[in-house]
Every structure is written in C-alpha cells, then in structure tokens.
Design a protein around this nucleic acid. Sequence first.
RNA 1: GGCCCGUUGGUCAAGCGGUUAAGACACCGGCCUCUCACGCCGGUAACACCAGUUCGAUUCUGGUACGGGUCACCA
Length: 478
Amino acid sequence: MQTNIKTRFAPSPTGYMHIGNLRTALYSYLLAKSQGGKFVLRIEDTDRSRLVEGAVEVIVDTLKTAGIEYDEGPYVQSERLDIYREYAEKLIESGHAYRCFCTQERLDSLKDEKGIGGYDGFCRSLTPEQVRENLDKKLPYVIRQKMPDKGVTKYTDMIYGEVAIDNSELNDQILIKADGYPTYNFCHVIDDYLMGITHVIRGNEYLVSTPKYCLLYDAFGWDRPVYVHLPLLMGKDGDGNVSKLSKRHGAVSFQDLLAEGYLPEAVVNYIALLGWCPKDTNQEFFTIKELEKLFSMDGISKSPAVFDYEKLRWFNSEYIKKMSDEEFDNRTIPVLEKLLSSDMNLKRLSGLLHTRISAFSDIEDSVKFITELQPVDMSFYTNKKNKTTPEICRDILADCLPILEQAEKWDNDSLFAVLKEYCANSGRKAGAVMWAVRVAVARQTVTPGGATELMDIFGREKSIERIKLALSELSENA
RNA sequence: GGCCCGUUGGUCAAGCGGUUAAGACACCGGCCUCUCACGCCGGUAACACCAGUUCGAUUCUGGUACGGGUCACCA
C-alpha cells in the first residue's frame, strides 16, 4: 500500500457534469480515500472559446451532492498562466520544445496533402536568427513539444499493464497556443507534478497519448505518476449500437438525472458498479463511506460498460423504498398538490405510490388517471384469473352502485367491508368484484392501489360518478 | 486508414488451468394479495472464432473476426 497518495479530478467547465466524468471523479476520490490519501479538484479552463458561465459552480455543486469531498482546490488553470509559460521556456532551452510560426493555412494544406495526422516539424529547423527575426516581426507562434523520431515510449498502466507506443506515432503537439494559453497536453502535466499528484486517473481515451506526457516528465527529469486509465462508459442506441455515452442516449448529466427524479445516492451507487466490482462480496448497495473503505484498483474492469437506465431505475426504486414515509411524502405531496385538487387524500395517495414508482418523474404518469377521464377499452374488464368479463362486471357494478350510494362511511376500511359483505351475500369472488370496481373507477388496468383505496382517494361523489359512467358504457357495449 | 485497447447470458458482472461457469437488472412462471406494485419461490439465457501450449483451457500464447478509442492552437 502506498502512503501519501494523491489523486485529482480535473474537469473542464462545460456547464454540465457528464455521468462518465462523475464516475472518473468518484473512482479518483475513492482510490485516494481507500488509502488514506488526498483528493484535489482542478478546473481545466484553458480553452477560452468554450467558457461557460457558472460552469465551475456546477462542478462544485455536483461533487458536493454526490458526496465527493475534495481536500484541495479548486485550482484554476487560467490563473496559473505564468507558471506554464515558465516551464515551456525551460523546455525550449533544454531542446525539448521549439517555437513554431506556421500559419493555419500551411497547417491546413499539410492536412490536405498527408491526410490525417501530424505536423511535419517544419519549424524544428529554424535557426536562432530566424526565430529572433520572426519574434521581432511579432509573428504569432505556438510552442511545440519535440518528439523523438525513433524508438518506443513505454509506461505501465495499473489497469492495462504495459503500454508501448512507437515514437513515430507521436506528433509534435502544441504546448502553448498562439493566444498564450497552454493546452491540456501541457498544463495538466505541469499541474500534476506541481500539485504532487501520485496517481493520474482518467478515461481510456488518454491511454495512447500518455507516452507524450511521459516524455514531458522525462524532459523535466521528474518522476512519472502512476497511470490508471478507466474503461469508457458507453450508451446503446435504438439500433443496438454502442458508442461513448452521449446525449443521444438520454440524460447523461448528473443534473439531468436528478431532474428526472433520481436520488444522488442511487446514481452514485450505480455508477460505482459500472466498471468496478468489489472483491469477495456480492454486496450491491453501498454508501459512499463504505465505498471509501472497500474500493480497490484490482476490481476495475478493462472493458467498457454500457450504461443501463433500467438498472439505474431499479437502484433508484430501492433507494426510494428505503426512504421513510415522511421523507417520501415531503418530496411527493408538493408534486401531487400541483397535479391534483387538494381536497383529495394526498397523503394516502403518496403512501400508495411509495412502493410503486422508480423515479419521482413517474408520479405524473401514475396519477394521470385521477384527473383525466381516459378512454376505456372493454377488454379491460376481462380478467382471466378473476374470471371477469364485461358482462359480469356490468352486473357487479349494477349491484354495487346502490350499495355504495348508501354507504355510511367513505373510507378504505368501510368500503372494503361493504363490498366484502356484498361478496358474501351474492356469492361472488372478491377478486372479481374488486376488479370490476377498480377498472370502473380508474379506467385502466394497472393502478396505484386497490379498488377501495382508489375510491377512498376519489371521494364518494367522484367514485359514484365514474361507476355510473362505466355502467352505461358497459350496458352499451357488453 | 495507421496505431492502441477490449471481447463471459440482452445489460452490469464473478471467475484468475480442473467449477453443475456465481450474483444483480431485465424477461418468463408460481405463491401471496381486493388489482398493480412490494415481498417470497422458481425458470430461460453466456465463455466471439481458429490454432497452439497443457493430461486438461473461459482462464496462458498467436492469429482472425467484431466492437471501441485515438490521430486538434478540445479537454
């Protein structure tokens, strides 16, 4: 076990937190915490064209809501420009980097001629005099890393093992842009070193470019960090094709998921298990504190994982069921108040919903039948198990209507007793009677709660009204 | 296209040379129940392919296929 381990999460402020990024943050955080280390947050905002207002707050809020606490930061790269500049100059002095004055036009034509891939190193051979001259003319320039033209650069990834890339595959990448801002390729290395990052945890998309960063460490004579590349998070589209999880696959930002009624703990729990599996246990429910203890790198998978909304829904429904009734009501009743008239027994309805929704956004659909008079298909009245048909239901309803109209008390227990008594007197099965009443009142086959529970919520007047309507429909069509 | 990585049921996954190849989601069936849901019980379903190493390969090696990633003055 390594002591003084330090990891970081270094997102760029895009205005939303992609769920894949959040998972990277989580693993990074967990790796540090599992070994008593530190976790730092750094904002990589060196692309001025993509600045988004309030984006840093989104990152900070997301981490907080997810339960990921950072020990240092947020460091902001745009505030550290001088540092990068200084280190870039050092590289020029030591011959590991050079100024490049090539115009965009020349770069474009290069691309056209040679297809995709690389800079041709034209400015490598500029003499000091030529550079001086260009500088005096105030020509814009970038600083590029000088890659070795032969050989192989290797490193050991904690997940993938040894990775070896031919240096000929490496481009003379830009370290400092013409606007003076550094590129990710450069400043993340400087920062990771300066901030004492021991383990660099990031997505698999960096696996191949990491040798370039290794070369930077080497050029400065610094020790390379441990690299941990994570398998990507994939999404599946309607045709069954998988690709990097993106907006076309549905809600992919943490905020979107919360807005759809997912609980933060459920989301965190689910994504923790997407690409990682605990050792020696089949446990699948974890608090973040438990994860901090249990997490270990050898449980990380090598292959990409498809984000499955169904399973997230299941996790979420489990977390919802774990909520106390009070918590659940507090969250649900305000929503119901907006959707329904307030003279209904919303608390009772909320109770019925507790074990029946998987996300809070389900509420609207599951109570729609209360306010809307939905079209009824006569087949709804046919139920094999309870041996009902539209005719039988018509007869049942005709019998029950006067009984219900005369019911003294209108609550679930009383109504249930009344109908039960009818069953006894008529010799009908309770299941059949309840089926008929329930479908008549709700006008759909799947409902949150049973017949008498629904009548309780609807109240006497509305229940009777709907049963009368059902009766007339059944008389016409049956 | 070059380079790199990956491949156990529809999905997440355990497995780390000998197993009846776990478990979870989804799906199907049953029980419970006044419906649905919950809960409980059960079921269908997988080692991409071909060689090699080995007494023995899901597990090791090579190739093929398929999938993914990457080749920016984006991160």
